[in-house]
Design a protein around this nucleic acid. Structure first.
Lengths: 238, 238
DNA sequence: TGCCTAAAAAATGTATCCAATTTCGCGACG
DNA sequence: CGTCGCGAAATTGGATACATTTTTTAGGCA
């Protein structure tokens, strides 16, 4: 998951910088520079510029003309907006999946939902086991497979820059037993709807799934910012 | 509109290449290379690589591992998908605008809709006048102002890469008198809804506006691909 | 003391060179 | 005659040097 082999230096810079910004390891109260980031990552400016370009497009960085880059952490309102956008785009993806998914994809979605249910059971029966990362991975896989099954490259590209693993993980970390069970139940409903070709239901079920997560995260007092840290922290190149 | 002064070489390359791809001036049946594009534009590979990177993210270019770039023209199905996505994102933008727009922005939207009505009148009374480009411009301005008034940077970024002026212009070119009148009417309805803070109505009216355009474009036998040309055509650097 | 100007410092944008990876063609061998 | 393999060519990725633009600061003059 961390460092794919065929990854270019630019990809690596992008992955590390994006994670560093969203987890608050880069300062938001002062400028950073391409040269500085390059030194930090032990790279030349070329791949860093590539990564910075993508982050500018995603809005996680902003350029103040001649005066450095500034990291932009999404505010609570912006996180709300991101969930709203996800609800609209992913429900469209689910609806399309119900219409266009291959038989194999439908089966895989049902299987993923089943695995998720098992994982939640495991969590309930043995709270000490380290199942949470596996739940996170299964969740990511499920959403990813739906977008693939929608057969809409445009949708993939848009969601890719909207859904960030850091934000999703943040969401899931805020989840408790109750919410995880409900979430697993949602996955089952969505998978069955898609497998059965029920376009409307699949879309609406996904909408509920996402907005439910949003409402939970945003009403939880702890889940404010992703690590609203201030001081400068080193980002290790590895 | 064409060439902003403070534009960098990379921006220029991006603008020209994107337009060249969508208008069919670059071949889709054989590879193009960064070096080739650079020579075409009379630039070094550096700014071209920047532009190519953005186009790869947008999906208008695709990289076949070691062997050149390929231009990807949206198929009819993909255009349909783009309209669906626009309907969902722009209706969200309109709803947000109805909630968050400043008084000035509300007034400007109403004014834009009024100007559009005047332009359509002008077109009706004097079919020979060259009002069509002005109508296109007013239309672009209207949609742009709504997205701004939504006060959601994320939405701006996503729509920016989804809405392409070439596709919109293509749509409008397919429009006749009847459709233009209806479109102007839509603009008025949307502007009034936003100005009056009617969140639901604004969103739904925008949805109708976009899907109506989609249904018209996609049922029109002439509006198939954007210039499905095959042979190689030069792209002038200017 | 305050402001204008100009020089220097900083940051980004561009060009060019080199390295690494992949492709394709050619030839030899089975 | 087909296939394997090696090498040359093509293409992209990364580093560095240079140009351009903007900011900041130092200094002089009112």
């Amino acid at each position: 998951m961390a460092e794919p082999k065929g990854e270019t230096a630019a990809d690596r810079a992008y992955r590390i910088l994006r994670s560093a910004i969203l987890s608050g390891r880069l300062p938001t109260d002062r400028k950073v520079t391409e040269a500085g980031l390059a030194e930090m990552l032990d790279l030349s400016r070329t791949p860093v510029r590539n990564a910075v370009g993508r982050l500018l497009i995603e809005g996680l960085l902003q350029r103040r003309k001649g005066s450095g880059l500034w990291c932009i952490l999404p505010t609570r309102d912006e996180i709300r907006t991101i969930f709203d956008i996800r609800a609209r785009l992913e429900s469209y993806a689910a609806a399309r999946a119900a219409e266009f998914a291959t038989p194999l994809q439908r089966a895989e979605l049902v299987a993923s939902a089943a695995r998720m249910a098992l994982l939640v059971d495991e969590m309930l029966s043995d709270p000490h086991a380290d199942v949470v990362p596996r739940i996170d991975a299964e969740n990511a896989l499920f959403h990813c497979k739906i977008v693939e099954a929608a057969h809409a490259r445009r949708l993939e590209l848009l969601l890719q820059s909207t859904i960030d693993v850091n934000l999703v993980t943040l969401t899931l970390q805020a989840y408790g037993t109750e919410q995880r069970m409900r979430s697993a139940s949602h996955h089952h409903e969505i998978a069955v709807a898609i497998a059965g070709g029920m376009v409307e239901l699949a879309g609406k079920a996904m909408e509920v799934h996402i907005l439910s997560a949003a409402s939970f995260v945003l009403t939880d007092p702890q889940a404010d910012h992703p690590a609203p840290r201030q001081g400068k922290m080193p980002v290790r190149p590895g």
